[in-house]
Amino acid sequence: MGAYILRRILFMIPSLIIISMISFMIIQLPPGDYLTSQIAKLASSGESIDSAQVAALRSRYGLDEPMIVQYWKWISNIVFAGDFGLSFEWNRPVSTMIWERMGLTFAVSFITLLFVWAVSLPIGIYSAVRQYSMGDYLFTFIGFIGLAVPNFLLALVLMYFSFAFLGQSVGGLFSPEYIEAPWSWAKVHDFIGHLWIPVIVIGTSSMAALIRVMRANLLDELNKPYVVTARAKGLPEWQLLLGYPVRVALNPFVSTVGWILPSLVSGAVIVSVVLSLPTTGPMLLQSLLSQDMYLAGSIILLLSVLTVVGTLISDILLAWLDPRVRYQ
């Protein structure tokens, strides 16, 4: 098991390097270098810039040097000093702005993941065991709706209904009085009260997909000879189900976290824009629209890295569940 974990961590390193390169590429994409355009912007608003300060910034980001050097300066600052560069729009270091939002993004995504699992697992088992029952058809139908309705549209519809019929506006993760307040039990409680709407909105499509996965897997397993063996041993039906086919069907289910987590993080980004959640979503959109590229690049980098790490954790979980994975 230890060797397996070590191997997986080693495999992750090239991934992280490529992710950082992609993020750096995104920073570089807008035409012209950001400092020049920033200076132009400041100049147009009538502010003067100290030329010594400009020179210092140019050398700090290596703007006059080859691309690879620029990349190295950027990534080494992040890795060794936790310095993500400067947000030109806010004129503050990126690192001071993103951590809280990043934390909330992952809190929301992770809680959604747990919710999705907790709901789709029993429904998937039910649908497979009672194949073609009314309940199965109902869940299949809901599953298709979940698959077809883009999550931001679901958020919009939810907002519309609660505003038009309940006279309430939904959105945000905190009541106004807690937004600036430090963390406390009351704030956590308030947070949980606001959480359920984004969790349902972000989770629905993944839930639909997972129910389908679990149902199909379990249906496959239910026809395997070992189920007959277990039945011939005289096991009670529920003990048989949970002990044998469900445990086997759980493996492909757990391995779906490899794409569920990225899609939840993706979903969280866009849904937070609609529901104006204080997560990275709105900040990323804003920074991209104003071409505040260090901020945008850092958010993309961190979201990707944390997703890859999350996937790694799920893989380890899988190996612990299924002995066959460890021996491969």
């Binding site: 395997k224 000879p225 070992y226 007959v228 063996t229 277990a230 086997v248 066959r324």
Partner: peptide, 11 residues
């Protein structure tokens, strides 16, 4: 059963 490969629970 016939199939000793598949007739035992795999995990």
């Amino acid at each position: 059963f016939q199939e000793p490969m598949t007739s035992l629970g795999p995990i």
